[in-house]
Design a protein around this nucleic acid. Structure first.
Lengths: 128, 128
DNA sequence: GCTTGCCCTGACGTCGGCGTCAAGGATTAC
DNA sequence: GTAATCCTTGACGCCGACGTCAGGGCAAGC
């Protein structure tokens, strides 16, 4: 299959596929006319990348998963390097979620205070 | 006070202050020599901006708070426009936190599955 | 043959919030 | 007086994941 069909089947664009190739993530065979040629396994790789991208992984973080698939494993996360990325991502997410919740709480307090409610309680001495 | 002192007192850089001025957020008086001149009220505006930036507000979102202060209110969030930004931000944060938690959960499941644990339970039929 | 539609490469644009450098003028310290 | 330290404007760089255009080649239908 050619680049347009692959892009459409994966719900993405040709530009994105060329970009992935430029990053060495999704190299393509070439037909005699210079056109890129892909097969079903490329679609699988691409879908792996896209899934992780949707999760908020950046491109480099998807590389171990892609290489894992290319090495013959049925799942991209069957390899230690992929699992390491999972674990790191979990830590990052926990940290980020914690920060966001803290910010959320502080905004909520300020909103309540500015929105007419008088201060009712101390909140651990946190500066607001 | 001149730009260097203001930057230092606010824990930021002169470049940042000039950028804020270019965005119309923190205009400066000028002395006879062309130097920017600031006073304590500018420091207060700047600190308001920085606080909100630390919360993850982008610059445009800080504008209502700055204008509120400049209008003479003791707090930047004493004005309806600021409260509206607060509320919108809370909604955004809730949505974002929810998404991140969902992603976190899906990664955790995949990690557990790939990490040797056999699948123990159904999780609402969610595709993994 | 001509049009239409795919494909190619190369390169610049986007977004936000500045960093960093260049080339000068002003002020301050000694 | 002069060196060091401020200040000025202007302009390019950065990051990531592409979008978008320019200028051209190849293929297929009529």
């Amino acid at each position: 299959m050619r680049i347009g069909e692959l892009a459409e089947r994966a719900g993405t664009t040709t530009r994105t596929l060329r970009y992935y190739e430029s990053r060495g993530l999704l190299p393509a065979r070439r037909g005699g006319n210079g056109y890129r040629t892909y097969d079903e396994s490329d679609l699988k790789l691409l879908r792996q990348i896209r899934t992780l991208q949707d999760f908020g992984f950046d491109l480099e973080e998807t590389r171990p998963f892609v290489e894992c698939l290319r090495a013959g494993h049925p799942e991209g996360d069957s390899c230690p390097a992929s699992l390491a990325v999972y674990r790191r991502k979990l830590d990052e997410l926990d940290a980020l979620i914690g920060e966001l919740q803290a910010v959320r709480a502080r905004i909520a307090v300020r909103l309540a205070m500015a929105d007419g409610e008088p201060p009712l309680c101390e909140l651990g001495g946190q500066e607001l």
